[in-house]
Write a protein that binds this DNA or RNA. Structure first.
Lengths: 132, 132
DNA sequence: ACAAGTACTTACCCTATAGTATGTATGACC
DNA sequence: GGTCATACATACTATAGGGTAAGTACTTGT
């Protein structure tokens, strides 16, 4: 599952920047390519694994769980599994995950006003921006 | 200068997600590890290359210019060079770069409230958050 | 008997990003 | 005439993230 090597120079640089820059702290948690997309989808409420897969069709299964595990270990989402067959697993934003709404919203707003030709597409999407 | 290979699968996935997700659009522009940190520093106003270097001491020169070039080509910052010796180069947020303030601010706010022991450090930093 | 669905896991490979180290042009200053 | 400072460039290496492909366990439906 792609274990992270401790004590690499990159990781040490990161942990140093952590302490000094709040923005960096955030980027380290949601900075992966797919993480914001997943979080965005979870803003709409509880989602099954398979629902997320359908909502983000271009992500591969490996990367999807990988990112979900990371988000879970960072405390941004919670996983609930019913021990049935076939399995039934749901993901949900945690308290701090829900607190990211203003961040994602600010991003989306920025995209609407600073994406040239895509602006119209994005502003249409904003109508669907989950309010709670 | 690390040219990006066009037509790789990764790039194609990205360009597809672009069109559907405003959050992804933003992440692609400021999603690099150092970009938000650089932008954060430029929120304070015009900065010389050497000032940025001192402000972000753990970044290497190679990566610093690399990121600056990318931010410039994305239209988030502007570069001005005086043809003197020694050279005098300054960087500044563009209009769309300045528009990122709410995004960075929302991130910093989230960090203050969701970083456990680091919260106090971050809230102290927030006092210095550049207002304009 | 067998295919389908769910939520994964594993093995292997490729690429973008980051780090290390060194080089460059030019004029000012000593 | 050698050093200093500025703002880079370049070559090489390392790592994290992402992609492809295949497999697993168990039950329900045909």
């Amino acid at each position: 599952m792609t274990t992270i090597k401790a004590n690499s120079t990159i990781q040490e640089n990161k942990s140093q920047a952590y302490v000094t820059c709040p923005v960096t702290f955030v980027m380290d948690k949601i900075g992966g390519y797919w993480k914001p997309i997943i979080l965005f989808n979870l803003l709409g409420g509880v989602r099954r694994y398979s629902e997320l897969k359908r909502a983000v069709p271009t992500i591969t299964e490996k990367v999807l769980i990988q990112q979900l595990k990371q988000l879970e270990s960072e405390g941004l989402i919670t996983r609930k599994a019913k021990p049935t067959v076939p399995p039934h697993v749901t993901y949900e934003l945690s308290k701090s995950g829900k607190a990211l709404r203003p961040v994602l919203y600010a991003m989306a707003e920025w995209a609407v006003h600073n994406s040239g030709k895509l602006s119209k597409t994005f502003s249409r999407q904003m109508a669907d921006f989950p309010l709670e």
